[in-house]
Computed example of a mutant assay.
Amino acid sequence: MERMSAADLLRLQAKVGTVSRMQARGRLPAGEMNKTEASYAQHLELQRIAGEVLWWSFEGIKLRLANDCHLSVDFAVLPASGVLEMRDVKGARPIITDDAKVKMKVAARAFPFVFKIVLPRSQRDGGGWEEETVAP
């Protein structure tokens, strides 16, 4: 098999596109957190200890949207307000597939929960987490 040159690799990467490259990395097995999710879980646990969050679960709730169509959000969170929130953690400014956007919007219309996308803030911006509510 012939080796690919660096220039050929760059051309191939440009053709494939960012979203496809991300999907090619694959997913972790169900129930296993990536580094960003693990960091957010620590954040939630600190909030639980402080009384700001009453309960949280990682991949604990799977929502049926239609036949053979489900949404499993990263975290189900019950804040002290008592309104259950479904939070999906993204590693950076999200590159969300159309499928994920549609599922979140459909779920926001169908279920009495608040749906949020959670993003880490850069250290330059003070760190922490930014939450964006998904409108139905």
Rank of each mutant, 00 (worst) to 15 (best):
E2Q: 09
S5D: 10
S5P: 06
A6V: 14
A6I: 11
D8G: 10
L10I: 12
L10E: 13
L10C: 03
L10H: 10
L10F: 09
L12K: 14
Q13W: 03
A14P: 05
K15M: 10
G17N: 04
T18P: 03
T18H: 04
T18V: 06
R21L: 15
Q23V: 01
Q23C: 02
G26R: 03
R27H: 13
P29M: 11
A30E: 04
A30P: 06
G31L: 00
G31V: 00
G31S: 02
M33K: 12
M33T: 05
M33S: 11
N34M: 07
T36Y: 05
T36H: 00
E37P: 04
A38S: 09
A38R: 01
Y40R: 10
Y40S: 04
A41D: 03
A41V: 08
L44G: 05
E45T: 03
L46T: 07
Q47H: 11
R48M: 13
R48A: 04
A50G: 11
G51M: 08
G51I: 09
W55L: 08
W55Y: 13
W56F: 15
W56A: 04
W56H: 11
S57V: 02
S57W: 02
F58K: 01
F58D: 00
G60T: 14
G60L: 02
I61T: 08
L63H: 14
L63G: 06
R64T: 11
R64A: 09
R64Y: 00
L65V: 05
A66Q: 14
A66N: 12
A66R: 13
N67D: 14
D68I: 00
C69A: 12
C69N: 12
C69P: 00
H70S: 09
L71D: 07
L71M: 03
L71E: 03
S72N: 12
D74N: 01
F75H: 03
F75C: 02
A76P: 07
G82W: 04
G82A: 01
G82E: 09
V83R: 13
M86A: 11
R87S: 00
K90Q: 06
K90D: 05
G91S: 15
R93Y: 14
R93G: 14
R93C: 14
P94T: 13
I96P: 03
T97F: 08
T97W: 10
D99Y: 15
D99L: 15
D99G: 03
A100V: 04
V102A: 01
K103H: 05
M104W: 02
M104K: 06
K105R: 15
A107S: 01
A108N: 08
R109M: 13
F111Y: 15
F111D: 06
F113E: 02
F115S: 03
I117H: 08
I117M: 09
R121N: 15
S122I: 01
R124M: 09
D125C: 06
D125K: 00
G126Q: 11
G126A: 08
G127F: 09
G127V: 10
W129D: 00
E130G: 07
E132A: 14
E132Q: 15
T133K: 15
V134S: 01
V134T: 09
V134K: 07
P136M: 05
P136Q: 12
P136F: 03
